[in-house]
Amino acid sequence: MPTLARQEFSEVRTRAQRIKKISASDQIHAALRERIITLELAPGRNLSRQEIAEFYGVSQTPVRDAMLKLEEEGLLAIYPQSKTEVSKIDVEHARETQFLRLSIELEATRQLALSHDPQLLENARKALAHQREALASGNLEQFAKHDRLFHYSLLEAADVANLWDLVTMRSGHIDRLRNLNLPDPGKAANITYYHARILDAIEAGDTASTDDAVRGHLTGTLSQVDEIRSRNPEFF
Rank of each mutant, 00 (worst) to 15 (best):
N46D: 11
D147M: 09
R125N: 06
L218F: 02
L155F: 04
L41F: 12
L47N: 09
A189M: 12
F150C: 07
E54L: 13
R13W: 07
A158Y: 01
L135C: 07
T221W: 02
K69C: 11
F235M: 15
P80A: 10
E34C: 06
R95N: 02
I228T: 03
P62N: 10
K126S: 07
R33E: 13
V86D: 09
R15H: 13
I174P: 00
T192I: 13
D200S: 14
I228W: 04
L140W: 03
A158W: 01
V214F: 04
L76T: 01
G138T: 01
D65E: 09
A158S: 05
L41Y: 13
R49Y: 05
R231I: 04
R18V: 11
I36W: 00
I22N: 07
N181H: 15
R110Y: 09
A24I: 14
Q224I: 03
I36M: 06
M169T: 06
G205W: 06
T207L: 12
V167T: 07
H130E: 11
K69L: 15
G138A: 07
A136L: 08
R148L: 01
E133S: 14
K126M: 13
T109K: 15
W164V: 01
L41P: 12
E234K: 13
E40Y: 03
A16S: 14
R148W: 00
Y152L: 15
A129N: 08
G57S: 08
A53I: 03
A124I: 01
A158T: 03
H151P: 05
T3M: 15
S87H: 02
T109I: 10
